[in-house]
Nucleic acid binder design. Structure first.
Length: 160
DNA sequence: GCCAACGTTGGC
DNA sequence: GCCAACGTTGGC
């Protein structure tokens, strides 16, 4: 069995929040609508079943990591790109030659308390995080040391 | 709501 | 294949 990798996935809570994920059937949802080529690469090829990700709330007064999710289905075509009615429609791809991909994630657990971006900026151990270096990437890798440092900050003794 | 940063597009 | 213009993200 290959080693679990760690990620961070952003969502605007007004659009789709961590609690919204919890409320879904099986607490599972497609992570659709990502239209950035670097993030696409992660979704399509690198995120594997069993990998875990921080769920990050962006575009709010105090943006923060609020919880943990798990990848339950690896990369497959994002059908919202095929639907002209959908806001994420992209005519460059097709069902035969999909351009955009998504994974399915399942709610695992909230952090004991949210860890804010503001707070992370003051923590040397996470100073190299993609979140701090390249703020706009909506799906991004997290190093294992960073993952653990954030769990510790949040007061989580043991990963569920 | 503003605007800086930065990813993407398209003319050349 | 460069790079200016444009559009979007996301912190503030």
């Amino acid at each position: 069995m290959s080693e679990r990798r760690y990620w961070l996935m952003k969502s605007e809570p007004s659009c789709f929040s961590f609690d919204d994920l919890k409320a879904r059937p099986d607490s599972t949802e497609h992570w659709d609508g990502v239209r950035n080529f670097q993030a696409r690469g992660y979704l399509k090829d690198e995120m594997k079943v069993g990998d875990r990700a921080f769920f990050y709330h962006s575009n709010i007064a105090d943006p923060a990591i609020v919880g943990i999710v798990e990848v339950v289905k690896a990369g497959y075509p994002d059908w919202t790109a095929f639907d002209p009615e959908n806001e994420h429609f992209d005519p460059r791809g097709s069902k035969e030659k999909p351009l955009w991909f998504m994974v399915d994630v399942r709610y695992v657990a909230p952090l004991p308390r949210p860890v804010t971006l503001r707070e992370l900026k003051g923590v040397p151990e996470v100073g190299d995080m993609v979140l701090l270096k390249r703020g706009r990437l909506s799906v991004q890798p997290v190093r294992e040391e960073e993952w653990r440092a954030i769990l510790r900050l949040a007061g989580m003794q043991e990963e569920p």
